[in-house]
Amino acid sequence: MHRTFEELIGSDLDDLHSAALCFTQDRHRAEELLQEAAIRAFHEFRSGVGPADFRRWMLGILVTTYLLKERRRGVDPLAVDVGPEGEEQPDGRQDAAVPFPEPGTRAHEWLRAWLNEAWPELDAGDRLVLWLAAVERIRHARVAKMLGLAEEQVRRRHYRARRSLSTGASRLLTRDRFLGSAEA
């Protein structure tokens, strides 16, 4: 028996809510976004879709609805695409290799907590791309289609966001104070 729209969205609702909250950074707007996207998806839904395809499809509608709603209120998360010089793509620079702490250690937990807090600091468009590419693991070409961007733009945003978090994490790890207290 085919699963219904309500069943399918019911299984993914927590993840979709997390995504909506990450995009909007606002609880109220995240709920509004999710509801609007769900109603829209409901009308476009064709039965026979499996859970994995549904999730990807529903995420696409969530993203489109997010962009529409933002643009409606005069904000375009993808309008500005300029990052710090040299952080647009991988280059040959030799960063100091900072060993990352092992999972399960206090330092690792600390780092996770820091990363959790660092998401809101990212540019809205970069954050959106990071979620799709790094968390949902959607390929750049597909993300580009979802967002109406060129693949290269997606790659650049992904790199920028990832590098920003990576650099921040490395800085945190090299701080004596942090290492001292984390290992204590």
Binding site: G10, L13, S18, E31, Q35, A38, R112, A113, L115
Partner: peptide, 26 residues
């Protein structure tokens, strides 16, 4: 970093009121 990003991503379960409102709307 990729592993950490996935691991540390802010997760927020849909509140029950939202679930209820959404299914009512549907």
């Amino acid at each position: 970093v990729a592993g950490l990003i996935r691991d540390s991503v802010p997760r927020a379960p849909a509140p029950r009121e939202l679930r209820e409102r959404l299914f009512t709307a549907l």
